[in-house]
Amino acid sequence: MKIAVCVSHVPDTATKINIGSDGKKIDPTGVTYIINPYDEFAVEEALKTKEKFGGETVAICVGDDAVKETLRKALAMGIDNAVLLKDSIYRDSISIAKALADEIKNQNADLVFFGKQSVDYDNSITGQLTAELLGYNCVTVVVGFQLEGNKIIAEREVEGGKEIVETSLPAVITAQKGLNEPRYASLKGIMAAKKKVIEEKPLPPAENYVEIIAMKKPAPKQPGKIIGTDSSAVPELVRLLHEEAKVI
């Protein structure tokens, strides 16, 4: 079985983001990039599936040379091969999905893992689009995954509970936190990854349907307010949480 994992290279969630001078991109100066945290669950599930059933794993990423760092991380965790679909321009989700679908077809992978979303643009759609383009079954926001022959039993997180679904290969699975505990890249894994070659492939020009016209920072947080210092403030606190903040 060939298992593909599509990964994305995103700014570290702990990094402070600034918007670039053109107002359409983030300014990468001083920004640390990491593997998209949801993709770590995807990588782990691919590795576990391979460990159980055998086969081969490949990580695929769209981007410039900088994203090799994320592919190396996937290799260090234990993925067998890596492909960089090389490009340095902005691509919308459908354009990325087309590139990935072509490569997945080329790799002949019948099981594909994605993170449920990338924490940079948060579109939460690349996995689904790729599945559609490939004609594969698709289960999203997965917190439990079992493979029996061709049959997949997946647990999905839904509002207020869980949903168990059944489908079959070939399939795209998008991973949610809780699916597994991603392993750390061990030192031996890191040394082994050094010997692996990241295959680079050029991409045709992007055909974007969506264009970013502006990026804006959120409004600064309002300061908190103290409504009292003893138990007499509780009713007012409850009222505000209910009526103003609308969290209870």
């Binding site: 760092e69 190396r72 991380k73 260090a76 750390y184 890249a185 061990s186 030192l187 890191i190 040394m191 990854a193 050094k194």
Partner: peptide, 14 residues
């Protein structure tokens, strides 16, 4: 170098 950073990051996360 890249390995040094990866090792550092892995242990940092750990």
């Amino acid at each position: 170098n890249e390995d040094e950073k990866m090792v550092r990051n892995s242990v940092r996360e750990f």
